[in-house]
Simulated assay, not measured.
Amino acid sequence: MKIDGGCHCGAVRFSAEVGQPPIPALSCNCSICSMTGFVHVIVPHADFTLEKGEDALASYRFGSGQAEHLFCRHCGIKSFYQPRSHPDAYSVNANCLDDAPRMRVSFFDGRNWEEAKQALDGGEDAE
């Protein structure tokens, strides 16, 4: 299934191929995700296309510096980014999709990142 989305002002637009609904998604309680309302849909790099706006993207790193938080320099919206949890994929914000598909949202305890990542890798729910 193809999904489309982008930032608030439309300067950044992307498309991606994801599986059939319900699409797996993660709700994270780390400082940046909880403050921005980011709901993660993980998309392998090969299945993601930045349609426009590469020049509109600004980067922000904090903590370990491994995640690259990309946001529109015009409207400030982070519609996707490079997470440290999935180095071969982008995390797309489900709240930035034009027509969000039905999703199966699981909790990711980003405030206890190492333990949550271990549970995620082990196939366990991080609830």
Rank of each mutant, 00 (worst) to 15 (best):
E51N: 08
R84G: 06
T49C: 15
V105N: 04
N95I: 00
N29D: 13
V39I: 14
W113N: 09
E51K: 04
Q118H: 13
H74V: 15
S15N: 13
R104H: 13
Y81L: 01
S106D: 08
A94K: 07
I77K: 03
A58W: 05
A119S: 10
N112R: 08
Q118T: 15
S31C: 13
Y60K: 04
E115V: 09
H69E: 10
H45C: 10
M1N: 07
V39Q: 07
G65T: 06
M35P: 02
V41Q: 08
Y90D: 13
N112Y: 08
A46S: 15
G37M: 11
N29K: 07
S91D: 08
G63L: 10
F107S: 00
A11K: 10
A116D: 01
Y81P: 03
D88V: 08
H74G: 12
F48T: 09
Q20V: 12
F108I: 02
R13Y: 11
S15C: 14
I77C: 06
H74R: 15
D109Y: 02
A126T: 12
A94V: 06
R104C: 11
E17I: 08
L97W: 07
P101T: 06
F14Y: 11
C9V: 15
S79Y: 04
G63T: 05
L120G: 03
D47K: 08
E54R: 08
F107H: 00
H69G: 11
I32M: 13
K117F: 07
E68S: 11
M35C: 14
C33V: 00
A67P: 06
L97M: 11
I42M: 03
D4L: 12
K52I: 01
P24G: 07
E114T: 12
F62D: 07
A67S: 01
V39W: 00
G123W: 00
L97T: 01
H45V: 12
A116C: 15
L97F: 10
F62H: 06
I23N: 02
A100C: 06
A58E: 03
P24C: 02
Q66G: 15
N93M: 04
D4H: 09
N93P: 08
A11L: 09
R13T: 13
A56F: 01
V43Y: 00
F108D: 06
Q82C: 11
L26Q: 02
M35K: 15
K2P: 04
G53E: 00
F14W: 03
R13W: 10
N95S: 12
A94E: 09
R104G: 13
G5Q: 02
W113E: 10
F71M: 06
G65D: 02
M35T: 14
E124V: 05
A119P: 05
V43D: 00
A119F: 00
R61I: 01
G123K: 04
M103W: 07
A94N: 06
P101C: 05
F48V: 01
A100W: 03
S79P: 09
S59K: 10
E124S: 10
P21V: 00
V18P: 09
E124K: 08
T49P: 02
A46V: 14
M103N: 04
T49S: 13
P22W: 06
N29M: 10
R104N: 14
L26A: 04
F71G: 01
P44Y: 07
V12P: 09
S31N: 15
N95C: 13
H40F: 12
D55T: 11
T36F: 07
M103V: 07
